[in-house]
């Protein structure tokens, strides 16, 4: 598992621009623990080892319990998440998978029941952001910083 290329070295300006997206998402006012929960889930779905290794300690730092961290991969069957967290996870799954090339109304209704439109937009920016990082890190085979 050798790193293929290093975007921070090859295209520092591009990396900086992407990092500014991250900074924006961090400043949206959404709970940082919730953002980490979403980032961890999306990174699992996409299969990004670097990102999972990064977001587990961050999830812990921003208040997620060990039970929650351990059960993110099976969140649908795990009773340790609030309705708001479940809505965010369902939305993150649907937006990431784009199954049938869409994000279904049922999932949108679920997220609307827990988040206002502004929060939904910001949550989706976070999901878009982590989808971008996942692809960058997997494609470049960046190893987890352990």
């Amino acid at each position: 598992m050798e790193q293929r290329f290093d975007i921070t070295q090859l295209i520092p300006e591009g990396y900086k621009a992407m990092y500014a997206v991250h900074t924006y998402v961090q400043g949206t006012g959404l709970d940082l623990g919730l953002l980490e929960l979403v980032r961890l889930r999306v990174s699992q779905a996409n299969g990004c080892g670097f990102c999972v290794a990064m977001h587990i300690p961050l999830a812990r730092k921003y208040g997620l319990t060990e039970h929650q961290i351990n059960l993110v991969a099976t969140w649908k069957e795990s009773p340790v998440f609030s309705a708001r967290e479940r809505a965010a996870l369902a939305w993150a799954d649907a937006v990431t998978a784009l199954a049938g090339q869409e994000v279904p109304d049922t999932v949108y209704e679920q997220v609307k029941a827990e988040f206002n439109p502004e929060e939904i937009a910001k949550l989706t920016l976070c999901i878009g952001e982590i989808n971008t990082w996942n692809r960058l890190m997997i494609a470049s085979r960046t190893p987890p910083a352990l």
Binding site: V95, T96, L98, Q101, E102, V103, A121, T124, L125, I127, G128, E129, N131, T132, R135
Partner: peptide, 10 residues
């Protein structure tokens, strides 16, 4: 992939 997700989601 991020832009697509924003436009499709909404």
């Amino acid at each position: 992939n991020a832009y697509n997700r924003l436009a499709i989601s909404f």
